[in-house]
Structures are given as structure tokens and as C-alpha cells.
Amino acid sequence: MVFGKRDNQELRSIWDWRITAAAALLLLFIGLLGISFGPLSLRFDQIFRTILGLPNGLTEQERGVLLDLRLPRVLLAALVGGALATSGAVYQAVFRNPLADPYLLGAASGAGLGATIAITNAHGNLYGLLPVFAFCGAILAVLVGFFISGKFFAEPNSLLLSGIAVGSFATAVQTYLQQRHSASLRPVYSWILGQLTAASWQVVAWSSIYILIAISILISISKQLDGLMLTDEEAYSLGINPNRIRIIAVVAATLATATAVAASGLIGFVGIVVPHLVRGISHRVTNRALPTIALVGASFLVLADLGARTLLSPAELPIGVITAFVGAPFFLVVLRRKRLVNQ
């Protein structure tokens, strides 16, 4: 691998951008599927007419459902899926651990604690501030782990361990609060399983800012992230400062994860399945796959949310149930194939 050299031939052997183009097309197709189905049946031709601004489109109420409910929900699913998949891939690179996922450093437990505080607070009505609480909880948990570990610069594993400890602590406090407020069990539980029911343009607007910035940062350092696969000495010799890259990567990935969690609760498995899926299918292990991983993560979650909305329709199913139910067996198939290749 040669870094800093912009040779087309070389780049193609590292990553084939046709895969990225295919992933973009896939997302477009699944996105269209996503806005086409729901309890209210809308005609395809009328949907297209409405989107393109042609006459004879949907009625005003149908337009409202399409533009104010389904479209923001599909966009939010795409953003969250992209954020979780990209962060997962980056954590895996930073910690050189294939099992790393976006919740590794305690972000999930911290967010869970924040959300539970917002839900169980009986006095002030904090329910509306749930995303803010979840976001701050996630960031705080990672920050605390970061400062406690201290040795992060020398040893990523100590950050990992202190993240796990902080996570367990936050979960303990969260469970205590939940036990003290039994009436909050259902909202807390459904939040933990993850849901996109709260999707609105407002949520899409604020979450897209953080998520797009974070993903752009991660993609822009993807070359240097590849350098983390080498030993630190080798990375230095290529002009990469591994600690700096690790910090930038962890900060950006945490920002993306915290935003995703604040917008949609704890949706599991996307951050592990999607990166490995892309690596397994493309037979390449490089962070140049990040844009593709983001696109496939987005497609995966839009599709999972379509399932969440249609399987029990007109009732809802928590999306986390679907991501794990579909993701886990699929993941096992990819893993098995990979092992056969390696043998």
C-alpha cells in the first residue's frame, strides 16, 4: 500500500469505486420502496407526480403523509444507518478489533441513562428534551471513559476497558431509575429497542448536520485510518501520527453515534454487520470502503424500518428487533464464507 500517491491504477486495486456506485443506486431504490409503503396505500404514479411537482398528484392529506411522515422517516433511517455503520467500521479500525461496534465506549449506556432520566422525571416535562439528554449522556459516557483511561495515547485497549466500566456504571444507574419508576418501563424499553417513530423534518435537520459532518471527517481521514492497521512505528514512517488519527476518529465516530442514538434510540447490530458485509462482499479490508459502508448502512436501516412499519401494520415493531433478526443470520453466512476463503 502506498499512501499519498494519486495513481489511478493503484487506487483501483485498493478500492473499486463501482461498488460504491452500486451501493448508491441500491440506497436510491430502497429509499423509493421506503416511501411507497405504509398503512395508507398511495399509488406509485401519484407519488412520482407529487415528488416531481406534476399535476394530478396525491390529495392534500396523502401529500402530508408522504412528505411529512414517510419522507423524513426514510431520511432519518438512512442517516442513522449511515452513521452507525460508518462509526462501527471506524471503531473496528481504531481498536483493531473486528467485534468493535459504535456502542463499545459506553455511548449506548450513557444515552440510555440520559433517556431514562428524561422519561422518569415526573416533575418538569423533560420528555421533549429526550434527544438532548440521550445525546449528552452518550458524549459524557465516552468522555468520562476517555479521561479515566488516561493511557489512551499509549494503549487503545485501556480506553476500551474503561469505556466498558463506565457503560456498566451508567446501566446500573439507569436500571435503578427504571425500577423506581415502574410506570416508565414501557417507554424506556421501547426506546432501548430503537424506533424511528419520532422522525420529523426537525429531527432530520439537526441530526443530518452532525452526522454528515462526522461522516465527512471520517471519510477524509480514511487513508490515514488504513495506516492504523500497521504498527505505530510503521505508521509514523509513512508520515501518519496514529494517536492524532485515533483521537479524530473516535471523536467523529462518537459524535455520529450520539446523534444517531439521540434521534432513534439504541438500534443494534448495524455497526457490526454492515462493515463486515461490505468487506466480505468486496473482499477488501480498507477504510476507503467508508462511503460504501455508509451507503449500505443507510440502505440496510431503511429496509429494516420498512419491515418495522409493515410486518405488524398498522402497529409498529421496534426496528432493533428487525436489524438483529435479519442481521445476525446474514452476518453468520458472511463470516462462514470468509472463513472458508481464508482456509
Binding site: G38, P39, V65, L312, A315, L317
Partner: peptide, 21 residues
């Protein structure tokens, strides 16, 4: 009642779109 089958205890979570419909 349109979503009663979703939960055998009778407490389904409805979709916003269904309420509108």
C-alpha cells in the same frame, strides 16, 4: 382494534400514518 393482533394483551403501538388514515 385495527391493530389488535399486534399485541395479545391488547396494547398495540399504532403508526402515526394509521391514526391519520
Amino acid at each position: 382494534d385495527g391493530a389488535a393482533k399486534a399485541d395479545d394483551a391488547g396494547y398495540p403501538q399504532l403508526q402515526s400514518e394509521y391514526v391519520i388514515k
